[in-house]
Design a protein around this nucleic acid. Structure first.
Length: 431
RNA sequence: GUGGGAGUAGCUCAGUUGGCAGAGCAUUAGAUUGUGGUUCUAAGGGUCGCGGGUUCAAAUCCCGUCUCUCACCCCA
């Protein structure tokens, strides 16, 4: 029986690996220039760690197994619990704010579909220990900074921003009980995803009181922060939440990315643990799930047995992003092959050892060099050099009896004769 | 867990009324014994997803099954 790749996994052939590296390298560059430090954890953890935050149902959506010591373990479906565990462990020794990032490989046992696989990479950026929404602004900036570097503009993507705290205070102000909030959130999260009639019907089921429901419907139609202030009335909590959003947008404006950002009260995020600012980044032209999502989760460390220290962060997976970059033709910029700087060709088999000797010297000088195993005619070797995308060829022929090489520029097609020692000297001085 | 779509060469796919298994790209070799990219020629590469049925004859029709994929549910 022929064995095939497991459902929802990917094989990375060299050209796929080039794309993956294009994404991952960009993530790391953006993180580092935004002042984040890289961390990583184990690829599996105790199953209980994931159940603690999200409940038992989550167990069916992750790859769990028992080891030989009868420990219940799971392959990590996210890295945030690991982050919480690691930070809690050294909370008194770590200088704050803690600005860390990671690019973990994650697995989730969900049914695969467009933009979602069972094994993927996810860029995570978190700031722990900053109450002010400046931290949220910086997380958003970091994500946008990356997307711009990757080649996307404000015509391509949009950051939709809202606030859990705002929703919570307004809903409470409208008279909806706190115990009902999660249920209502789940419905509000669907607003942009289902037809208006369906949305209305779902809302009817979640909020039986007609007065309250009308208020919520009106609220969900709000498009600007100014409108929200009217809803807030004299409610202190709601006013504070609006004020926070205003400050956030001001920060984003100062940082020069306001054209990417918009307020959208329909952004709720599925999970219960978000406590404040929430945001998602979408591709404007396509019907894809979010490229990126994040927000504030002030109970993170406390949920994992640590002190109550605030946190905010985001995650960006490689699947949806990969589709977007592919559609925009951005991957063509990614170098698929390692670019050969010098391809060494030899005119006669007798010169092969001389060629090998020079190749070794080029490589030890830090340059990328390759050659033909088969040898054969010079034409064949140059053909192979072209196929490999070589920038230059070093040709070793009769001239080598006077220690001279031919250096051929494969792009311009020009060639010059050069003394071997001079050529090798140039290698070391270059760059 | 529910529902649609698709499985033919490494890839993208064609395959007529049931009648010898095909093309392009890719790969390899040659045209070319000191000069590449273009071009030309040739070769290799198939359990037509798998199993059963109908038939003189099945990639093609029927039944079953597996896999992949898309949309739901969910989404950290």
């Amino acid at each position: 029986m022929k064995i095939q790749a497991v459902k929802g996994t990917r094989d990375f052939y060299p050209e796929d690996m080039a794309r993956r590296n294009f994404i991952v390298d960009g993530w790391k560059r953006a993180s580092i220039r935004n002042g984040f430090l890289e961390f990583d954890g184990p690829i599996f953890e105790y199953l209980a760690m994931y159940q603690q935050k999200s409940g038992d149902e989550i167990a069916s959506q992750l790859f769990a197994f028992e080891d030989r010591g009868e420990r219940m373990l799971a392959i990590r479906p996210e890295i945030t619990p690991t982050l919480a565990r690691m930070v809690n462990q050294r909370i008194n020794a770590l200088p704050r704010p803690i600005k860390w990032f990671s690019v973990p490989r994650l697995c989730r046992a969900e049914r695969p579909q467009k933009g979602r696989l069972r094994e993927f990479f996810q860029w995570n950026v978190d700031i722990i220990g900053v109450d002010d929404c400046l931290a949220d602004a910086e997380v958003i900036f970091c994500a946008v900074d990356y997307l711009i570097e990757a080649g996307l503009g404000s015509d391509d993507i949009v950051v939709r921003i809202s606030s859990r705290r705002l929703l919570a205070s307004l809903l409470e102000y409208f008279g909806i009980e706190e115990s009902q909030l999660d249920k209502v959130y789940a419905v509000l999260d669907k607003k942009a995803k289902v037809p208006p009639e369906a949305f209305e019907k779902m809302l009817e089921e979640a909020i039986t009181d007609a007065d309250k429901r009308v208020k919520v419907m009106n609220l969900m139609a709000a498009e600007t922060l100014v409108e929200l202030e009217q809803f807030a009335g004299n409610d202190e909590n709601a006013k504070k939440a609006v004020d926070e959003l205003k400050r956030l947008f001001e920060y984003l404006n100062v940082m020069g990315i306001s054209e990417f950002c918009t307020f959208d009260i329909g952004i709720v995020r599925g999970l219960a643990y978000y406590t404040g600012i929430v945001f998602e980044i979408y591709d404007k032209s396509q019907q894809l799930r979010a490229i990126c999502g994040g927000g504030r989760y002030d109970n993170l460390l406390a949920d994992f047995g640590g002190p109550k220290i605030t946190a905010t962060g985001m995650g960006m997976g490689d699947c949806v992003l990969g589709i977007v970059l592919e559609e925009k033709g951005i991957f063509s910029k990614a170098a698929v092959n390692g670019v050969i700087e010098y391809f060494v060709a030899y005119a006669e088999d007798a010169l092969r050892n001389d060629a090998l000797n020079i190749i070794a010297k080029i490589r030890r000088a830090g340059k990328i060099a390759d050659f033909s195993y088969k040898g054969g005619g010079l034409g064949k070797q140059l053909k192979q050099a072209s196929a490999a995308g070589a920038k230059q060829c070093v040709i070793i022929g009769q001239e080598y009896s006077q220690k001279k090489l031919i250096l051929k520029d494969m792009i311009k097609g020009e060639q010059v004769e050069i003394v071997e020692s001079e050529f090798l000297g140039q290698l070391k001085n270059a760059d």
